[in-house]
Design a binder for these strands. Structure first.
Ligand SMILES: [Zn+2]
Ligand SMILES: [Zn+2]
Length: 256
DNA sequence: TAAAACGTGACC
DNA sequence: GGTCACGTTTTA
């Protein structure tokens, strides 16, 4: 009874509350593309969406117009980037093994999910983000879904479709790879994950200004609690999962 | 164990 | 150089 309410949270009256920043679009350029036309009532348990929608979604026309790509063509997510786990584990290796075995068919599971033909965004909080891949696993992946978040290989974070899918997928890219500069140049520095941009909190566009994070933004350096990405809330390696074990297992599967 | 504080990566 | 916010460390 709290979760649902939490999400709706202290619906900020309007973006005026969104602190100073959170420029009309709280989401970074790469994010704001995800201009979902959903009727908010989807993610909010509010009897009268019309009202909240205004405050939360804000159909700013400015968002509509896409200036034919920002000056900075967010480089397409190259595989290696996505495979690198935040924990330093190179999923690439595992992936290679998988691909060699023909298991990893990077087919975007977006077929209809993105089509919007189905208003039912079966997006149930966190599960929604990682569900994309579920079919794969269930179908012919010898791994349990729980294995995937293993090496920071979070579907929610680096949505696969981004690579294969067309413009839409790429544009909506939120947590595509990481900046090339930060990848190797950092020198062992751990990279930050990015919000998925699709979960309920991510879709929120305004800060509540009431939660502890909002009130304590100066010191807390945290995003509004109601906007905290569900994916980021999860531990990078999943609860009680040792990523190294995961890789070992993968190798073991293919190399004996 | 959760929350607060802090360091700093990422982006502009 | 400033802001935002993720990840880690410290504190309660
Ligand atoms: Zn808040
Ligand atoms: Zn999210």
């Amino acid at each position: 009874m709290s979760t649902a309410v939490d999400i709706a949270g202290p619906s900020s009256p309007d973006q005026a509350h969104s602190s100073a920043k959170i420029p009309n679009e709280p989401l970074r350029p790469s994010l704001k593309r995800s201009n979902h036309p959903y009727s908010l009532s989807h993610y909010i348990s509010t009897p009268s969406p019309a009202v909240d929608v205004k405050g939360l979604i804000q159909p700013s026309p400015a968002q509509e117009q896409r200036p034919t790509q920002p000056s900075k063509p967010r480089r397409a997510p190259s595989w290696p980037d996505m495979w690198e786990s935040p924990s330093g584990l190179h999923l690439a290796h595992a992936a290679e093994l998988l691909m060699r075995a023909g298991l990893l068919a990077l087919t975007p599971a977006t077929t209809e999910q993105a089509s919007g033909s189905g208003p039912e965004e079966d997006e149930e909080d966190s599960s929604g983000c990682s569900t994309d891949f579920q079919p794969f696993l269930g179908a012919w992946f010898p791994f349990s879904p729980a294995l995937f978040p293993l090496a920071g290989f979070q579907m929610g974070g680096g949505h696969w479709r981004s690579t294969a899918v067309g413009a839409e997928g790429i544009e909506g890219l939120v947590a595509e790879g990481y900046s090339p500069s930060s990848l190797g140049g950092g020198g062992g520095g751990r990279r930050k994950r990015k919000r998925c941009g699709e979960c309920v909190p991510c879709r929120r566009q305004t800060n509540c200004e009431q939660c502890s994070s909002c009130r304590n933004r100066k010191r807390g350096h945290q995003i509004c609690k109601y906007r905290k990405c569900e994916e980021l809330k999860r531990k990078p390696g999943g609860p009680g999962f040792d990523s190294r074990l995961g890789l070992k297992w993968v190798k073991h599967l293919f190399e004996g």
